[in-house]
Design a protein around this nucleic acid. Structure first.
Length: 209
DNA sequence: TCTAATGACCCGTTACATCA
DNA sequence: GTGATGTAACGGGTCATTAG
């Protein structure tokens, strides 16, 4: 969108004298902008006077802030209006809005960073917790395997199949053996005692049959 | 359709004011 | 007096629009 260009075109069309004046003033402003930078470098003669005019008054800032809250973008018409209300150069108003947008963006980025960091910290904590859980579960699996090994080595492991104190897995047994005891179809069922490491589970179906 | 001119905007920087 | 911080202003670059 270039409303300013449109407006200037209309002004040029219908009010050529005013257009000429505006263009001339813009040219003056541009040259002033270029020279102001050079002037302000180092110790200049009227530096103190210029410095006194630099800071915007609280009233001016308040109005600019209010205007910014309403709309961050600044159309030329609004810029002119604000400038005339505050007795400022329209260029000053434009610059103020640019700087204000930059500050707003910077603040937004900081907020975004804080949120992301908090999220990241939570994720790290959760990761640690899960890693610990994995370690615990691995230890428990290892213990269970040792238990199985012991029972197999003793040779009386089968006598404890129905014992609630055992974590013996029936899926490890040969299907033919289970069939021999009239337990066909239970090969994929795992018995876990209630007081063992998976709380609340007694008969767990490991696979969908 | 192409191109130069123009204005708005953004970004990085500078200069200055203020404060601890 | 001085370094840190905030902010007005600048310069250069990009992009969209417009006129020729």
């Amino acid at each position: 969108m270039n409303l300013y260009g449109d407006e200037m075109g209309l002004i040029a069309q219908y009010y050529p004298e005013i257009y000429g004046q505006v263009v001339q003033e813009e040219g003056v402003e541009k040259s002033r902008r270029k020279s102001r930078r050079k002037k302000s470098k180092g110790k200049c003669g009227n530096g103190s006077e210029a410095a006194g005019k630099r800071k915007l008054s609280q009233e001016q800032v308040n109005l600019l802030e209010t205007s910014f809250e309403n709309e961050q973008k600044l159309e030329s018409e609004r810029k002119e209006k604000i400038a005339s209300e505050l007795g400022l150069d329209p260029r000053q108003v434009a610059v103020w809005f640019q700087n204000r947008r930059a500050r707003w963006k910077s603040k937004k980025l900081e907020e975004e960073y804080s949120k992301l960091k908090a999220k990241h910290d939570c994720t790290v904590v959760e990761k640690c917790r899960l890693e610990n859980e994995v370690l615990t579960l691995k230890e428990q699996v290892s213990e269970a395997e040792k238990e199985i090994q012991r029972l197999l080595e003793r040779g009386d492991g089968f006598s404890s199949i129905n014992s609630p104190s055992s974590s013996f897995s029936m899926e490890l047994l040969e299907p033919t053996f289970l069939g021999g005891f009239g337990m066909e179809g239970l090969e994929n069922v795992l018995y876990v005692p209630q007081n063992d490491y998976i709380n609340g589970l007694e008969w767990v179906k490991v696979y969908d049959m």
